[in-house]
Design a protein around this nucleic acid. Structure first.
Length: 566
RNA sequence: GCGCCCGUAGCUCAGCUGGAUUAGAGUGUCUGGCUUCGAACCAGAAGGUCGCAGGUUCGAGUCCUGCCGGGCGUACCA
């Protein structure tokens, strides 16, 4: 609690004239409710023994009468105990603040653009895009709750080679019937099959298919009606699929400005940088930006030798657009770790050309899969990726099978399935590689989404059955509720930490711990049974409302919905 | 070769930015608990020389150095 930390800082200032930012930690319950290490931190500057300093601080804190108990332990920790009742008062105060409980205003007046899930339109949604979707979505919610103006943009991979490959492959390997029947899955297969065929061709020294695909690209750029018709049809199929899957994930973005949108502006910008002397055109026509002054030896290539755009070209155009049109103060890219070096280059280039934005690559570890022999391996399209819709279907099947009764609605089953999958994504630090295992992917028990949902559902049920809180007994001591109250008081700081570090897993860890505390409480303390006196029942219901609020708030950040029953 | 990331219980992972003689969860194994608000729950047992070796200091899983092992990246793919 800031209140207590500030008080300690003030005491230190009074006693020693030292400005110190006292931080409170939560020690093991046997030591106290809160603890501070300021005495140890002051030992060196004051050249005194930490325990002596702690004694002096303790004397002041005792005199203040705020704490039930102040004790000194170990090398000089100061442990504090506060009465459950006054902690409950602190919690009410925090809930009565101007901002919703848990929110802060760190980003007030600033705009952030979030780039996710940056779907590749050539193939159906696979689990490969799941992390970007989840992490990006959670990050956008964290930014929103910390006062930022948030713009989300799905940077579609809709430019270049895939189109030509689609058309060639469609004519060679597919048919209208198949396309009508299988949609994006047919297009994805066509794409993979045709790329393999092109590769095969190359080993034989031929390039007929490749040339043909290239021809279609040129036709499209020239506005050839047949090419345009293909393009519009294929893109619609792909986009409809993307929308459908994202809707199932309960995730959406404000914009879908794809690579195609930024290709021409990007090319123009590349040439302009050459004129400005910021970029260099090689003899073969390609354009690079050197980054030696930023400690990066490999220059970034922003235009191909044949004058065509590549990744960096469209990203350059995108950066300029987000700067000029969105007036972004910050841009966050939720993209896998593989591209770390590329983003270092891109961000260095942005600085070099004078773009004054905070650029963050919110990277995450790769998804591994487990082989039959127990070894781990990176998931690759070569080995066969898991399609997201298959994953969702399987998760729903398992959630349904686990449901207590048959009258749980489909809506609720979906929320449970999605909750399980998403929570798994947030179970570990995003940088940790994720193991995709059909056996553990949709955990329904323990450290899992459904565990938290279950605790929330139980709380909501009690609140639903007891809509009126009533008059709270003024002398109620809240001892039974103390651990839950302490946990709730931690929440705003957890949100801040998660937002500052873009670490949504802190929210998942926290909400799990809250659920655990709540389940424990639920087990031991009746809230609204017949034998609970009205005044105490009111006190407990009031607290449960606060618990329910935090469950809702935290799960909302993670993009997890609470079912009505489960 | 160089750069970045990682190595914690059988397995999957946390570890509050250096803190407290028992390093935490889940899962798996074993034991107990549904006549009171929902057992997708709760209580308990067992399981670790935190990759190895040094160093920094009151104090290291956390910071530094060197090894060993793994992953990713290293300009015309995205």
């Amino acid at each position: 609690m800031d209140k207590y930390a500030d008080q300690i800082s003030q005491v230190v200032n009074d006693l020693y004239g030292q400005t110190i930012d006292a931080e409170l930690t939560r020690p093991e319950p046997r030591f106290g409710d809160y603890a501070t290490n300021v005495a140890m931190r002051l030992a060196k500057p004051l050249n005194r023994r930490p325990r002596d300093i702690a004694e002096e601080i303790k004397a002041r804190l005792d005199a203040s009468g705020v704490f039930n108990e102040v004790s000194i332990a170990g090398p000089g920790f100061i442990n504090l105990r506060v009465s459950a009742k006054s902690l409950g008062g602190d919690l009410n105060e925090a809930f009565d603040g101007e901002l919703p409980f848990g929110n802060n205003n760190d980003g007030a007046g600033k705009t952030v653009v979030l780039d996710f899930p940056s779907t590749n339109m050539a193939k159906p949604f696979s689990v490969g895009h799941l992390r970007s979707a989840n992490q990006g979505w959670a990050a956008s919610n964290l930014m929103r709750d910390t006062g930022w103006t948030v713009i989300t943009d799905n940077h579609l991979g809709d430019y270049g080679a895939p189109f030509g490959i689609w058309v060639v492959g469609f004519q060679k390997f597919s048919s209208e019937e198949k396309l009508a029947e299988r949609g994006i899955y047919e297009l994805g297969d066509i794409y993979i099959k045709t790329k393999a065929a092109i590769k095969q061709e190359q080993t034989e020294g031929k390039h007929e298919l490749e040339d043909e695909a290239q021809q279609w690209l040129l036709k499209l750029e020239a506005g050839d009606p047949e090419a345009v018709e293909y393009s519009e049809r294929f893109n619609k199929i792909s986009l409809d699929h993307i929308h459908k899957v994202m809707e199932r994930l309960h995730i959406k973005t404000d914009y879908e400005l794809g690579e195609k949108f930024f290709a021409e502006p990007g090319k123009k910008a590349a040439h302009k940088l050459v004129e400005q002397g910021l970029a260099r055109q090689n003899d073969d026509g390609s354009i690079i930006v050197t980054l030696d002054e930023y400690g990066i030896k490999t220059p970034i290539l922003i235009l191909k030798s044949n004058g065509a755009a590549l990744y960096a070209t469209t990203d350059l155009g995108t950066l300029l657009y987000r700067h000029d049109h969105f007036h972004a103060d910050r841009v966050i890219y939720a993209v896998a770790a593989e591209q770390k070096f590329y983003f270092e280059q891109l961000f260095a280039m942005a600085r070099k050309i004078g773009l004054n934005m905070e650029l963050i690559h919110m990277w995450f570890g790769l998804i591994d899969q487990i082989n039959e022999d127990g070894t781990r391996e990176k998931m690759s399209s070569r080995k066969g990726v898991v399609l997201l819709e298959d994953l969702l279907n399987e998760a729903e099947k398992r959630a349904r099978a686990n449901a207590k009764s048959d009258d749980i609605s489909d809506e609720d089953v979906k929320k449970i399935a999605i909750g399980a999958i998403k929570f798994t994504d947030f179970a570990a630090d995003r940088r940790t590689g994720m193991l995709f295992d059909w056996r553990t992917m949709f955990n329904l028990t323990g450290f899992s989404g459904p565990y938290v949902q279950y605790a929330a559902v139980r709380v909501n049920k009690i609140l639903h059955d007891n809509p009126n809180v009533g008059e709270i007994a003024p002398d109620y001591d809240y001892e039974a509720e103390k651990e839950v109250i302490l946990k709730l008081l931690d929440y705003p700081n957890v949100v801040k930490q998660a937002a500052d570090n873009l670490e949504p897993h802190r929210i998942a860890t926290y909400v799990y711990e809250l659920a655990k505390e709540m389940n424990r409480y639920y087990e031991n303390t009746p809230v609204a049974t017949a034998d609970v006196p009205a005044g105490i029942k009111a006190a407990r219901l009031h607290l449960l409302r606060q618990v329910a609020y935090v469950f809702q708030h935290a799960l909302d950040i993670l993009g997890i919905q609470i079912p009505s029953r489960m």
